[in-house]
Every structure is written in structure tokens, then in C-alpha cells.
Nucleic acid binder design. Sequence first.
DNA 1: CTAGCTGCAAAGCGTTTGCACGATG
DNA 2: CATCGTGCAAACGCTTTGCAGCTAG
Lengths: 145, 145
Amino acid sequence: MSCESETIDVLRESGHKMTPQRMMILTSLRHASGHLSAADIFEQVKAAYPYVDISTVYRTLTVLKEMRLISETHMGGGDATFEWVASERHHHLICRHCNGVTLLDHTYLEKLGSQIEREVGFHADIDHFAIFGLCADCKRETASN
Amino acid sequence: MSCESETIDVLRESGHKMTPQRMMILTSLRHASGHLSAADIFEQVKAAYPYVDISTVYRTLTVLKEMRLISETHMGGGDATFEWVASERHHHLICRHCNGVTLLDHTYLEKLGSQIEREVGFHADIDHFAIFGLCADCKRETASN
DNA sequence: CTAGCTGCAAAGCGTTTGCACGATG
DNA sequence: CATCGTGCAAACGCTTTGCAGCTAG
């Protein structure tokens, strides 16, 4: 219950108020296994706090994003997904055939990030990436056609 | 005018009909310097063919996407962008501060793609990537604060 | 001729915003 | 008690869809 206290302090110090709704949204993001859409968060929060509004979720997400506590990713399917940044860095391999999501270790992208920074001077936010393609299973299946 | 003939054949052979609207959309994508939104294409086509509808643009883009003649990218700002796949492969570095777009050579990503394929078995569609971060200029500016 | 494409209009979806009330610090 | 956050509802922008008529092959 108090494992968010650090985050709360960060928010308070930057002049933000702490409300039950924000607590719930924070908890939802912290304890999520991975990427959540605004609607996912909304559902989770609503379960414990039925009167929340989806706009509150979006507004809170905007604040957290500005503070870089969470990251936003567009997984192709229209709606954006959000994820706690402090969590283990990893990336998503999304199969365009079966829509399955596999995790990719951060080490793969780490090199790329530093290489781009060194050679192009651009500092890439490689918090996490969504890479589309064909997973091993679907690749096999497609090849056999 | 006939530099699209190859593409037209591809479409025809897959059972699609060729209409003036599609021609215009194709031409727009072929001759574009880079990524275009559906609205961009709509504007361009409308200039020569005032009665086109935005839904026709979307429907044509869907067809072209299915045939993998074009690729779709979500550049963060809500609307999707499309690009001719056969063009020189490259990627976009998008600055989150000044919104500037820099091109990144494909070689940077090539290695990554083959590495993922080799080690994870996932075939990444690295047609082109949108990488967010801070460009050299804005990085300098931010650092001096 | 007939499958497929078009324009139109309307709906759908995720997201944002204006406003008055309520809660926080 | 001033400020900021909230819920509600309505608007928004991009994208999709149903439909009747038209057109390419």
C-alpha cells in the first residue's frame, strides 16, 4: 500500500495534489505486468472506485507522461498503451499475423541507442519499442504455403 | 505517367480494378518525398480530382497496405502516416522537443533485424521505424538549463 | 454483365475540453 | 481558502461503414 510513497513524493514536490483516483491509477500502472491502454486502467480503477471518469485517467496519464514516470506507445491498433518506466526495460515484438506479443530484452536496443547518439547526435528515448513482424510460429506457417 | 505501370499490373493481377482515384493516390505516394498522412494524400488527389472522398483514400490505403506496397507508421501525433515501401529504406528520428524529423540510414536497423531473427526467431518488419527522442540541437539546449 | 469501386452521409472510436462543483494542501 | 483535480457532457479528429449508383474488365 505504501510502495507508491516515493512516487507520491515526486508528484507532490512538483506541485501536484494526490487524490484517491490518482493513487488508483498509479497502483494500476505499477502493478501491471505490462502495457495498459487508458481503457484498461479505467476498468481497473473503476472496479475499486466506481465514479472515476475516463477523462481523469487521461489527465493523470498526461501528467505522469510529462514527468516521464510512464511511457506511451502506439501499438498500431489505434489506442495508445502506457507503461511504468522504472520497470525492467524491454520491448515488444508484435506479430502481424496472430497478434501475439513477445518480449525482447533491452540489450538488443541498447547498442542501437548508443550508436545513434554517437554517430548522429540524436538521443533516442528507447524506453520501449513496438516492433511489428512475423513471430516464429506464423513464419513457419506462412513459409509452408 | 507510365512509371506506375508495374504497380498497376500488380494490382490488376490480384483482382483489383484500376480507377483514376487509385491512380492519383498511387502517384501521390510514389512521388512523395516521405511520409504522408491520409489527409495529405486526400489534399493532393483532390487538387487534380476534386470529387474524391477521404473514405476512398482510406480504402485504397487499406488495399495497398494489405499488398505490402506501402507501410503505415504511427508518428505519435494521432494520425497515421503512409509511405511507399519500395523506396530507399530509412527511418525517422523524431524530436519530442522541436518535432523535427531526421532520417536514419537503414544500416542501423538492419543489424538489429537480423539479430532478432537469428536469436529470437521473430521476423521483424523493419520497413521503417519512428524513433522518438531529443535531436542534437535540443539536447544541447536542454543540457544548458 | 457483374464484381468491385465510388461518393455521400452517418456512425464509431479514442481522446480532449469547458464548466461548475468538490477536494487537497 | 486558493488552487488544483474531478465528474459530467459535449465536442473533437481520425477512421470506418452502409448504402445506392456507377464503372472497369
